[in-house]
Computed example of a mutant assay.
Amino acid sequence: YFGARRTHGRDAALACARALSIAGYVGTSNLEAGQRLGIPVVGTVAHSYIEAHPDEEQAFIRFAEHYPGTTLLVDTYDTLHAVQRIIALSHRLGERFKVGGIRLDSGDRATLARQSRSLLDAAGLTDVRIVASGNLDEYRVAALRAARAPIDVFGVGTAVSVVADGPSLEAAYKLVSYNGRDCGKLSPGKVSLPGPKQVYRIMEGNSAIGDVIARRDEAVMGEPLLHCVMRKGCRLPSASPGLSASRAHLAAGLDRLPARLQSLSDAAQPYPVAVSQALLAAQSRFQQLHSEDT
């Protein structure tokens, strides 16, 4: 995850790093996230570092001296020339110049990855990995994978830090119960389902086939998904299982979803979510109660 500079503030950068680690990202370039959250820290060299040297060769040598096994950025001037330069330096300097990867940050990354892989392999540098970055999103990554581009690592930042296709979340917390009494809104287009709730997941074998939103106190077949995480203003210890446990929990939940929902394209058959009859009846009573008040 490379996107800290695009987020709306430092707190958002940490929140992104944490969420993406749970989602399966293997590391972050955010040093604070590494220190505070224990997320593996990864990164490469900046264009500005290379530009600050008289030539690219000196920049590569000095950076590799400081960070043996590093990943070097190769598109500052000419991508394939830079790859050839890394090969020449590796042969000339041997153990003094250890490079673990190259990063393609622009251009036709599928073609450049194939050309770079061919050059590296022919030179005996088969262990040098290829990292792709630069305005990648889920669709570009999927296209590169479908094209069988020999890319080992994808560095994604902006697309997950500031979401262009969904810049705002159309959701809000609404008061639905107060002092044991159902409450809510009846505004046009914003009618609430009153009262405390539970969500039940219906399983068929190892696959989820639908959810039911119900009253918290009603008995519905299925696995309850909502659990208490805070009491009297304090977060409960069970609500903070750690990143590893959270990542495993998410992966297990995704594995139980139907395959049609695990694609980038829209599912032909949406995942069914129903409202229980008891909850619909409570909503009807609530609407009737307040219609009598008017």
Rank of each mutant, 00 (worst) to 15 (best):
P241N: 03
Y49W: 06
E51W: 00
I22V: 15
Q35P: 05
P194Q: 02
H47G: 05
S244W: 11
M203I: 03
S276R: 00
I202Q: 14
A239D: 04
S29M: 14
A122W: 01
T28D: 05
L37H: 10
D75N: 14
P270Q: 04
G27H: 02
A274F: 13
D293N: 09
A113I: 01
N179E: 10
D137M: 04
T71C: 12
G253T: 04
Y173A: 14
A281M: 01
A132G: 07
L225D: 04
E204C: 06
R256Q: 12
P167G: 06
K174N: 11
A208S: 12
G24D: 04
S284N: 08
I130A: 09
E218A: 05
P188H: 09
L250F: 08
R231D: 12
I209R: 15
I39R: 02
I87A: 04
R92A: 11
M221H: 12
V229D: 06
R247I: 04
Q269K: 15
E170W: 03
V45K: 00
E95L: 11
D127L: 07
D152M: 02
C228A: 08
K174E: 15
D182T: 07
A146K: 13
T111C: 06
D217V: 05
A282L: 11
Y25T: 12
L236V: 08
R256V: 09
S284A: 12
R285H: 15
S118D: 15
L186Q: 15
F154S: 01
I39K: 05
N135M: 15
R216P: 00
A113F: 03
R215A: 06
P40R: 00
F286V: 10
L175P: 01
E218L: 07
Y139C: 09
P241V: 09
P68S: 06
R10D: 15
A248W: 05
E218W: 09
L31A: 10
S177A: 09
Y1G: 03
L243T: 05
S192E: 03
A64G: 01
P270R: 02
G180Y: 10
R5L: 11
D78S: 11
L31M: 01
T111P: 03
R247P: 01
S187F: 10
G134Q: 09
R140Q: 14
V176T: 14
A251W: 09
G166C: 11
S276M: 00
L104F: 08
L104C: 08
Q262F: 05
Q84N: 15
